[in-house]
Simulated assay, not measured.
Amino acid sequence: MATAITLDRHRAEDVVQDAFAGLHRNAHRVSNPGGYLQRSVVNLSIKVQRRRHTATRYRPDQLPLSGIPEIDETWQAVSRLPPRQRAVVALRYWEDLSEAQIAAALDWPAGTVKSTLHRALAQLKKEIAR
């Protein structure tokens, strides 16, 4: 999940480690460790992306190609989405969560999840149709 959002495997590993450290610090207050970790990974991944973008205006390296044109084209389009939209797309289609589950995992209103996903899918459709 973190790799899909940050587009960087090494940063994703750091994000996951930070999420587990946060769970360890707050274990006495956490009733749903899996949900806590998922939400932490998404939030920390988005934070990493924002900081990286702001601090360095970094452009990710080319994504590895799968050799299947449809998959490569789709993945490249997903990688160009803003981090919040990319997170919702990854949770919906990679993690196979429903919109209600995504809303619960991110502690967002269901309407925010729906509108974010709608905008992301519209952008992907527009880019892939080119």
Rank of each mutant, 00 (worst) to 15 (best):
A27S: 10
A27V: 07
A27N: 04
H28K: 10
H28Q: 11
H28Y: 07
R29V: 06
R29Q: 12
V30C: 10
V30W: 12
S31M: 12
S31R: 13
S31F: 09
N32G: 04
N32Q: 14
P33D: 06
P33L: 12
P33N: 06
P33F: 11
G34Y: 13
G34C: 07
G34V: 13
G34T: 14
G34A: 13
G34R: 15
G35N: 11
G35T: 09
G35M: 12
Y36L: 08
Y36V: 05
L37H: 08
L37P: 14
L37K: 08
Q38P: 04
Q38V: 13
Q38K: 14
R39P: 03
R39V: 07
S40C: 15
S40T: 15
V41M: 15
V41D: 13
V42E: 12
V42L: 15
V42M: 13
V42D: 10
V42F: 15
V42H: 15
N43H: 15
N43R: 15
N43P: 10
N43V: 14
L44N: 13
L44I: 15
L44Q: 15
S45T: 15
S45L: 14
I46C: 11
I46Q: 10
I46G: 10
I46K: 10
I46L: 10
I46Y: 07
K47T: 13
K47L: 13
V48F: 12
V48Y: 12
V48I: 12
Q49P: 03
Q49R: 15
R50T: 04
R50K: 09
R51K: 12
R51I: 06
R52C: 00
R52V: 04
R52M: 06
R52W: 05
H53K: 05
H53T: 04
H53C: 00
T54W: 03
T56P: 00
T56A: 06
T56S: 03
T56R: 07
R57Q: 01
Y58M: 01
Y58G: 00
Y58S: 02
Y58F: 09
R59L: 04
R59G: 00
P60F: 05
P60T: 02
P60Q: 03
P60D: 02
D61Q: 04
D61C: 04
Q62Y: 01
Q62A: 09
Q62F: 02
L63C: 01
L63D: 01
L63W: 05
L63F: 05
P64M: 04
L65C: 03
L65K: 11
S66E: 10
S66A: 07
G67E: 11
G67H: 09
G67A: 10
G67T: 08
G67F: 08
I68Q: 13
I68N: 14
I68G: 01
P69L: 10
P69W: 13
P69E: 14
E70C: 11
E70M: 14
E70T: 14
E70G: 08
E70H: 09
I71G: 02
D72S: 09
E73D: 13
T74W: 09
W75A: 02
Q76T: 03
Q76E: 05
Q76C: 01
Q76H: 04
A77S: 07
A77E: 05
A77K: 01
A77T: 04
A77Q: 03
V78N: 01
V78D: 00
V78W: 00
S79V: 00
S79K: 03
R80M: 02
